[in-house]
Design a protein around this nucleic acid. Sequence first.
DNA 1: TTCCTTATTGCAACTTTTTACAGTAGTATG
DNA 2: CATACTACTGTAAAAAGTTGCAATAAGGAA
Lengths: 139, 139
Amino acid sequence: MTCAINYAPQLRAQGLRMTPQRMAILHVLHHAGGHLSPTQVYKQARKEFPSLTEPTVYRTLEDLAEKKLLLAAHIGNGKIVYELAEGQHHHLICHQCGKTIQVEHTPFKTLYRQLESLTGYKLDSSHVTFFGLCSDCQS
Amino acid sequence: MTCAINYAPQLRAQGLRMTPQRMAILHVLHHAGGHLSPTQVYKQARKEFPSLTEPTVYRTLEDLAEKKLLLAAHIGNGKIVYELAEGQHHHLICHQCGKTIQVEHTPFKTLYRQLESLTGYKLDSSHVTFFGLCSDCQS
DNA sequence: TTCCTTATTGCAACTTTTTACAGTAGTATG
DNA sequence: CATACTACTGTAAAAAGTTGCAATAAGGAA
């Protein structure tokens, strides 16, 4: 749980405050080593801080994602998951078996530039999730 | 409402049946001319078919999307919206003002091929949504 | 037309997510 | 250390989305 205190300066730099609730949430994400749904975060973080409530979890995840401390990824049918924003990558999900792999951002850069000059938008470095069939399920 | 009957053959071809509930839902999407959330579909379709229920709407949208009659797009924070699958495109959303524009699939093809050879996945033609700042909001 | 198969629906209960608002507690400042 | 500002949290209630199952009805076959 002490690990989470390390995020305090990053929070502060964004005008956010460090609270025990946020420590619990960051602790869970830090040790998860992958993406978690808000419900998963809620259930696990309660072990660290039992009086934690759902609205706090949802709001915190949203706020931290907005300030780029977390990445929000859209998975499957309208589900959203969060993970610590360490290293930019995207997800490929097999809609047969659910196997998920990560892809570096590098191959996306060309496309991003193309889209930017095409549309005038300045694109985020946001997560994008693609769906398809993994090699095992292509039979 | 009669317009929806035209989709019956497409449904049949996919092993699906045409029902008054589905007619109402397709009618709404047909006249919306854009993407709608499940709740929006539910509220509007009830005007056509008042005994329609939520579970039916959610299941129908999911089923029709799976059979490629609808496209499911992930918008904003974990929200999912649906539209008729006419012409493949993707969305760019400005997270400042919310302005949404559509982009042809063409510029994506190179990336798709790259990702496929990189990962072994066979990618869907699924919708992808990107976020950024539109030209007006880049001040 | 009638029968039969099974895709589809509604119901009821439940889980997840969101909202408004009043009270609490970080943290910067003096 | 005390104060003040306001970000943050919990509560309560509503809205949105999901699940299992029994009943219904679409549509092909007789």
